[in-house]
């Protein structure tokens, strides 16, 4: 290797075995400047050979051992639980207690950089939202959607860590709807064969390619940058245009009916979408990504079409 004189930066990635974690790990590995250690209790069988994985629960003591030697340069925290079927207690414990602990290790063992992957959903879709929310907008996502209050709490935890641990460059990324082979709500929704929509509603939405999110994390890892950043993709589109691009058949429901129907389906375990997700196909929740562009030097590389089509990568 040509970069023999400088030691590789050691980066800990939580949630490494998730779809985004794998993409990031491979990207960091290919970059050549980083040594990656992953923390995830799930297996990541085809990971690159010199990537280390510690297969433990984030909340277990062994997670601390990763940091103990004091040679970790950066943490990328994307090990966030977002399983709508998991219990609220488990969610809270994982996302809030887990994050608190791991941020604690960073402070105790001299980590210089922390990147936390949050989401633009923390702002929440609302009818009276301004078209483009900036990073200082209030986080109202959990107001009508208590299931995600732990995700909002995690974002706020990271923000207070940013102010408290001044010696650490903390970056909080709030990407818009991530599309790709990821199994998140927006990608799963667009992969439905017949897509239910709400009659008379067609909000503008922002989407981002999963690989662009990975690029944003790389931008955030640059030394010196810190702060909270909305991360946007190539632009804004109405939901109907995205569904049109994919050639989906649409089944519009009047919104007063849609909620009870979805609630019943949810109870019967016939859907993976909790009722409050409907707000995302009814109201606007878009963000201003200007700060990430100017301060992180981040720019999406995928076009709108490529981003929409990315959900088809899943088999």
């Amino acid at each position: 290797m040509s970069s023999g004189e400088r030691p590789l930066a050691k980066i800990v990635v939580t949630g490494m075995a998730g779809r985004l974690g794998r993409l990031l790990t491979k990207r960091l590995h290919r970059d050549g400047r980083y040594r990656v250690v992953g923390i995830d209790r799930r297996a990541f069988p085809d990971r690159p050979k010199d990537v280390e994985q510690v297969m433990v629960d984030l909340r277990k003591k062994q997670a601390r051992d990763v940091f103990r030697a004091g040679d970790v340069d950066a943490l990328v925290h994307m090990g966030v639980m977002h399983d709508p079927r998991a219990s609220g207690r488990e969610h809270y414990s994982w996302n809030v207690s887990g994050t608190t602990q791991i941020l604690d290790y960073c402070q105790s063992y001299g980590v210089k950089k922390v990147v936390v992957l949050s989401s633009a959903n923390v702002y929440g879709p609302r009818p009276d939202n301004t078209q483009f929310l900036t990073e200082d907008a209030p986080l109202l996502g959990a107001q009508d959607f208590p299931e995600i209050r732990d995700l909002v709490a995690m974002d706020q935890l990271a923000s207070s860590f940013f102010w408290r641990a001044r010696e650490i460059d903390t970056v909080i990324l709030r990407p818009v709807h991530i599309l790709g082979a990821v199994r998140n709500a927006p990608s799963n929704y667009l992969r439905l064969e017949i897509v239910p929509t709400l009659l008379g509603f067609d909000p503008m939405v922002q989407i981002i390619h999963e690989r662009d999110v990975v690029e944003a994390v790389l931008c955030a890892l640059q030394p010196g940058v810190r702060g909270i950043f909305n991360v946007t993709g190539p632009g804004e589109l109405p939901l109907s245009a995205i569904l049109g691009e994919l050639g989906r058949r649409v089944l519009p429901f009047p919104h007063p009916l849609a909620r009870p129907i979805l609630r019943a389906l949810w109870r019967l375990r016939r859907t993976s979408f909790p009722v409050p997700e409907l707000d995302h196909i009814q109201y606007v929740c878009m963000v201003d990504g200007a700060r990430a562009r100017t301060e992180l030097g981040y720019a999406p590389r995928h076009t709108l079409k490529e981003t929409i089509r990315a959900i088809e990568a899943v088999r």
């Binding site: 009818p127 009276d128 939202n129 301004t130 078209q131 483009f132 709400l198 009659l199 008379g200 509603f201 067609d202 909000p203 503008m204 109405p238 009047p254 919104h255 109201y283 606007v284």
Partner: peptide
């Protein structure tokens, strides 16, 4: 600001260039 909660008006006004009345 109530218009985005009204079916059809919510997006038709948008398509025709009308915007939710926020200072931003």
């Amino acid at each position: 600001r109530f218009v985005p909660a009204v079916p059809f008006a919510s997006y038709l006004f948008n398509r025709w260039g009308q915007i939710t009345g926020t200072p931003d």
